[in-house]
Measured scan of single mutants.
Amino acid sequence: TFELKGKVGKVVKIAEDHYLVEVEGDKWIAYSDEKLSLGDRVMVVDVDGLKLKAKRIP
Rank of each mutant, 00 (worst) to 15 (best):
T1K: 15
T1Y: 15
T1S: 15
T1A: 15
T1E: 15
F2W: 13
F2L: 15
F2T: 15
F2I: 15
F2S: 15
F2V: 15
F2H: 15
F2Y: 07
E3N: 04
E3R: 02
E3Y: 06
E3G: 02
E3C: 06
L4M: 11
L4Y: 03
L4G: 12
L4S: 04
L4V: 13
L4C: 09
L4I: 14
K5H: 13
K5T: 14
K5F: 15
K5G: 09
K5E: 15
K5Y: 15
K5M: 15
K5I: 15
G6L: 02
G6Q: 02
G6N: 04
G6E: 04
G6K: 01
G6T: 02
G6M: 02
G6C: 05
K7R: 05
K7T: 03
K7Y: 03
K7D: 04
K7S: 06
V8S: 10
V8F: 11
V8Q: 11
V8K: 08
V8D: 10
G9V: 05
G9E: 00
G9N: 00
G9W: 01
G9I: 06
K10P: 04
K10E: 14
K10H: 11
K10D: 12
K10A: 14
K10R: 13
K10Q: 13
V11K: 00
V11E: 00
V11A: 02
V11N: 00
V11S: 00
V11P: 00
V11W: 00
V12Y: 08
V12W: 07
V12Q: 05
V12G: 02
V12S: 06
V12P: 00
V12I: 10
V12C: 09
V12M: 10
K13L: 11
K13I: 09
K13Q: 11
K13F: 10
K13E: 12
K13S: 11
K13G: 10
K13A: 12
K13T: 10
K13D: 11
K13M: 11
I14R: 06
I14K: 08
I14G: 03
A15W: 14
A15T: 14
A15G: 10
A15Q: 12
A15F: 13
A15I: 14
E16K: 13
E16P: 12
E16A: 13
E16D: 13
E16L: 12
D17H: 10
D17F: 10
D17S: 11
D17E: 12
D17C: 11
D17K: 08
D17R: 09
H18A: 09
H18G: 13
H18I: 11
H18T: 09
H18F: 11
H18N: 10
H18V: 11
H18L: 12
Y19R: 00
Y19S: 03
Y19Q: 02
L20W: 13
L20V: 10
L20K: 05
L20E: 08
V21E: 00
V21Q: 00
V21C: 06
V21F: 02
V21N: 00
V21S: 00
V21I: 15
E22M: 09
E22F: 10
E22C: 10
E22A: 08
E22D: 09
V23C: 05
V23M: 06
V23G: 02
V23T: 03
V23A: 03
V23R: 01
V23E: 01
E24P: 01
E24M: 11
E24V: 08
E24F: 06
G25D: 08
G25A: 07
G25M: 08
G25E: 07
G25F: 08
G25L: 06
G25Y: 08
G25V: 04
G25S: 08
D26A: 12
D26M: 14
D26H: 14
D26K: 12
D26P: 04
D26F: 14
D26E: 11
D26V: 13
K27R: 11
K27A: 09
K27I: 09
K27S: 12
K27M: 08
K27V: 09
K27D: 11
W28T: 02
W28C: 03
W28K: 02
W28P: 00
I29N: 10
I29C: 08
A30Q: 01
A30T: 12
A30M: 13
A30V: 04
A30H: 01
A30C: 06
A30K: 00
A30N: 01
Y31G: 08
Y31E: 12
Y31M: 12
Y31W: 14
Y31V: 13
Y31H: 13
Y31N: 11
S32C: 14
S32V: 08
S32F: 02
S32N: 04
S32R: 03
S32Y: 01
S32A: 15
S32I: 07
S32K: 04
D33M: 07
D33A: 08
D33V: 07
E34M: 06
E34G: 08
E34V: 05
E34N: 07
E34Y: 05
E34P: 02
K35N: 12
K35Q: 13
K35E: 12
K35M: 12
K35T: 13
K35S: 11
K35P: 11
L36T: 01
L36I: 05
L36M: 08
L36A: 01
L36R: 00
L36H: 02
L36Q: 01
L36S: 01
S37Y: 14
S37D: 13
S37E: 13
S37F: 14
S37K: 10
S37M: 12
S37P: 02
S37W: 13
L38E: 09
L38H: 08
L38C: 11
L38R: 07
L38T: 08
L38A: 09
L38N: 07
G39M: 10
G39E: 12
G39N: 13
G39V: 03
G39W: 13
D40Y: 03
D40Q: 03
D40P: 00
D40G: 04
D40E: 07
D40L: 04
D40C: 06
D40A: 05
D40V: 05
D40H: 05
D40M: 06
R41C: 15
R41G: 12
R41S: 15
R41A: 14
R41Q: 14
R41T: 14
R41N: 14
R41K: 12
V42A: 04
V42F: 07
V42S: 01
V42Y: 01
M43W: 04
M43T: 08
M43V: 14
M43E: 15
M43S: 05
M43K: 07
M43F: 06
M43Q: 11
V44L: 04
V44N: 01
V44G: 01
V44H: 01
V44K: 00
V45Y: 03
V45Q: 04
V45L: 06
V45R: 01
V45W: 03
D46R: 03
D46C: 05
D46K: 03
D46N: 03
D46P: 02
D46S: 05
D46M: 03
D46Y: 04
V47I: 08
V47K: 05
D48V: 14
D48T: 10
D48N: 09
G49N: 07
G49M: 04
G49Q: 05
G49C: 04
G49S: 04
G49P: 04
L50P: 09
L50H: 12
L50Y: 15
L50V: 10
L50E: 10
K51Y: 05
K51P: 02
K51R: 12
K51D: 04
K51M: 09
K51F: 07
K51G: 04
K51A: 09
K51S: 10
K51V: 13
K51C: 10
K51T: 13
K51L: 09
L52A: 02
L52C: 03
L52H: 01
L52P: 02
K53Q: 06
K53W: 10
K53E: 05
K53A: 03
K53Y: 10
K53P: 01
K53L: 06
K53F: 11
K53R: 08
K53H: 10
A54D: 01
A54Q: 00
A54H: 01
A54R: 00
A54E: 00
A54T: 15
A54C: 15
A54V: 15
K55I: 09
K55C: 10
K55S: 08
K55R: 05
K55N: 08
K55M: 10
K55D: 09
K55P: 01
R56Q: 06
R56D: 01
R56L: 12
I57V: 12
I57E: 09
I57T: 05
I57A: 06
P58G: 11
P58L: 09
P58E: 13
P58A: 11
P58T: 11
